[in-house]
Write a protein that binds this DNA or RNA. Structure first.
Lengths: 169, 169
DNA sequence: TAAAATACGTCAGCTATGTTGACATATTTT
DNA sequence: AAAATATGTCAACATAGCTGACGTATTTTA
């Protein structure tokens, strides 16, 4: 039953050309994603904890910061969680004045979301930390690697959300 | 999207380094990671749900599958959760015979973890799905992009765990 | 214009997965 | 013999998902 694989899994670079994909290469990708995502969220998580917030609050703050005036249903579509789940964190953020919502006068059913100054400050703090991590990795890797990084990640994302990311720029 | 503020331009070296990192590029990276990780875990999550398992079970099954004979503390070190958290999922997996543990005869305090046939079957199913997603993205992106993808992700991972991924050319 | 659909919110309860802290047991190291 | 290590367990708690039911305001549609 035990396959006698290497316990520490030394992995090698995918070799060139006709892109022959070994199981090992694919496993490496999965582990890279696991470790990178774990470390990517680590520092924000500890900052948020000081505010009594969690990663769910971060997501809301991040996306509202990136898309000021987005509606609640826009946000639900991005996060892919239920409105009941969102409600819990959003209510907190509204109550503690990190986010404010204004009725859309063009469709008064809709509530448009904005960061308050407080929310903006927290967003800046969180994004700054993550930016530094990414920026360092980007600089060390170089422009070509960055392009490849983006290309592969886009390929992992479903067709619909992939359209959020244009290739040019 | 608002570009009225510019919280984090990496202050370091406006070098001959050709990599101009704009706030927008860094935000794109964060969003790519968010969406990719969300979609990467989506299909396994629904398979696991049919077994009454969650993502935590997947991690245990995955890493034990990749490192047969690893100890409980090895696993704790990778997952970075408390032993109490691990205990809950590990106990379930032992009880339902997806994992078995054998006492290490060289150090009888240690319990070495292995997948049972059942565990192996589930691991195969889950890994197969994720492999297909990654393989498609890899093939569409090409070998150079794949290399860049790995390089950047390695750069995001902390120094210690980064050593798991050696580029032995 | 009445009915249906949409956008949003809320109450209640459940599950999964993380946390601390305390304590126990077996085994190995000092 | 004492200390450190590896593992396990009990209890209590928090975060963040989920389903289902229901309510209200507003817009769209038949």
């Amino acid at each position: 039953m035990s396959e006698e694989f290497d316990p520490v899994m030394p992995m090698s670079k995918p070799r060139a050309n006709p892109l022959f994909l070994r199981d090992e290469d694919l496993r490496q990708a999965m582990e890279l994603l696991f470790f990178a995502y774990r470390d990517f969220t680590d520092e924000p998580d500890s900052i948020l904890a000081q505010y009594g917030f969690g990663r769910a609050h971060h997501r809301v703050i991040y996306f509202v910061g990136a898309n000021p005036g987005m509606s609640v249903s826009d946000l639900l579509g991005i996060l892919r969680i239920t409105k009941q789940s969102l409600s819990r964190v959003l209510s907190q953020l509204l109550k503690e004045e990190f986010i404010e919502q204004l009725t859309d006068e063009a469709d008064r059913r809709r509530r448009l979301l904005y960061l308050t100054q407080r929310g903006q400050d927290l967003e800046n703090l969180l994004t700054e930390r993550q930016s530094k991590l990414i920026a360092r990795a980007y600089r060390e890797a170089g422009a070509d690697a960055v392009a490849g990084f983006c290309t592969v990640l886009r390929g992992i994302i479903n067709d619909t959300d992939r359209r959020r990311f244009t290739i040019d720029e």
